[in-house]
């Protein structure tokens, strides 16, 4: 039971991360690796401000803002600096490692005996954290859903879907890419901040592999819960984060697996989630065949029309 509740709680925290990764990878179609830096950055900022005596909730606002700045950096490197998206993320992530150390002043900042957002809930029922975290992440999901239905949100979605088209409608895709990355990493920073308060410390190493965790959540969620609409997917990725934590918890429970195997297990979960649908779902095969038939039927016509005029 303790394992299940723990997984639920951590899964809900990773839900913020999953929402952010979903926005960058799926909506913007941007392979953003900044996450490995913006997650611990949110944690560092939140922990630092709490140790300085700031309200833990307000420290989370700053964690989100800090994450947003990390996204801004990657966005600027990519759009203004014309650096490849993957590389821009890697550069930000690398730079952030040192910046995070500077923020904390040490590699590990403990919140022992400091008040966190969880302190008032500590002695209530054993589900109090879960309910509280669920409400928080559900609120974030709702806000993201709403944003993606506004004029600006539509422009961000179209940037990942058909950027030439949305440019021809007067949108600067540089701005929408930057905006998307800022929101994405703000959510990731928030996840980092909440995680630091949850586990009681911020660690400079805690970002390593976060991008894979986020991706795993998104992919697992999409496979299990479906992708019918935006609202469904934003819920699905949170579900995916919970399932991911559960699988990890169960795996660690097994006698022949040690905690050091965790990254290997994570990678394997992602690989399985990515490859299984290719074998099982007919739908995907159908899509492929329609694409093929399109190129077979339409493309020769283009050539013919050109020839015959």
């Amino acid at each position: 039971m303790g394992i299940v509740i723990g997984s639920l709680e951590q899964g809900l925290i990773y839900g913020f991360l999953a929402l952010g990764v979903y926005l960058a990878f799926r909506i913007l179609n941007f392979p953003d690796l900044t996450v490995d830096g913006s997650f611990p950055m949110g944690a560092a900022i939140s922990a630092l401000f709490i140790t300085k005596g700031l309200d833990p909730f307000i420290s989370l606002v700053f964690a989100g803002i800090a994450g947003g700045f990390a996204g801004l950096l990657t966005g600027l490197l990519h759009t203004k600096g014309k650096i490849n998206g993957l590389l821009a993320g890697i550069l930000s992530m690398t730079a952030l490692y040192s910046i995070n150390l500077k923020i904390m002043g040490t590699s590990n900042l403990s919140l022992f005996r400091h008040e966190t957002i969880f302190t008032p809930l500590a002695n209530l029922s054993s589900f109090s954290y879960t309910i509280f975290l669920f409400l928080l992440v559900f609120l974030a999901k709702k806000v993201l859903d709403w944003f993606l239905r506004t004029d600006l949100g539509l422009a961000v979605r179209a940037t990942g879907d058909n950027s030439a088209m949305i440019r021809s409608l007067g949108v600067s895709t540089n701005q929408t890419i930057i905006l998307g990355l800022v929101i994405s990493n703000a959510l990731v920073g928030l996840a980092g901040g909440i995680m630091a308060q949850y586990q009681g410390y911020a660690d400079v190493q805690m970002g390593i592999g976060m991008i894979v965790v986020g991706l795993a959540s998104v992919i697992i969620g999409e496979v299990i819960f479906g992708t019918i609409s935006i609202e469904r997917v934003t819920l699905a990725v949170i579900g995916g984060a919970i399932v991911y934590r559960l699988v990890i918890a169960i795996a660690l429970y097994l006698p022949f697996i040690s905690p050091t195997d965790m990254k290997l297990i994570t990678a394997m979960i992602v690989i399985i989630a990515l490859t299984i649908p290719k074998f099982s779902l007919r739908k995907i095969k159908k899509n492929e065949s329609t694409q093929k038939s399109f190129s077979n039927t339409v493309m020769p016509q283009i050539k013919e029309v050109k020839r015959e005029g």
């Binding site: 709403w146 506004t150 004029d151 600006l152 422009a155 088209m165 409608l169 007067g170 949108v171």
Partner: peptide, 28 residues
């Protein structure tokens, strides 16, 4: 080239309707 495939007809039209205008946080 002229439409966004994963978005609905009404969403595509809404984006075109906003051609050249400032896009904000109004529901599309």
């Amino acid at each position: 080239a002229g439409t966004a495939p994963t978005m609905s007809i009404e969403e595509n039209l809404s984006m075109a309707y906003q051609r050249g205008k400032k896009r904000g946080f109004r529901l599309a």
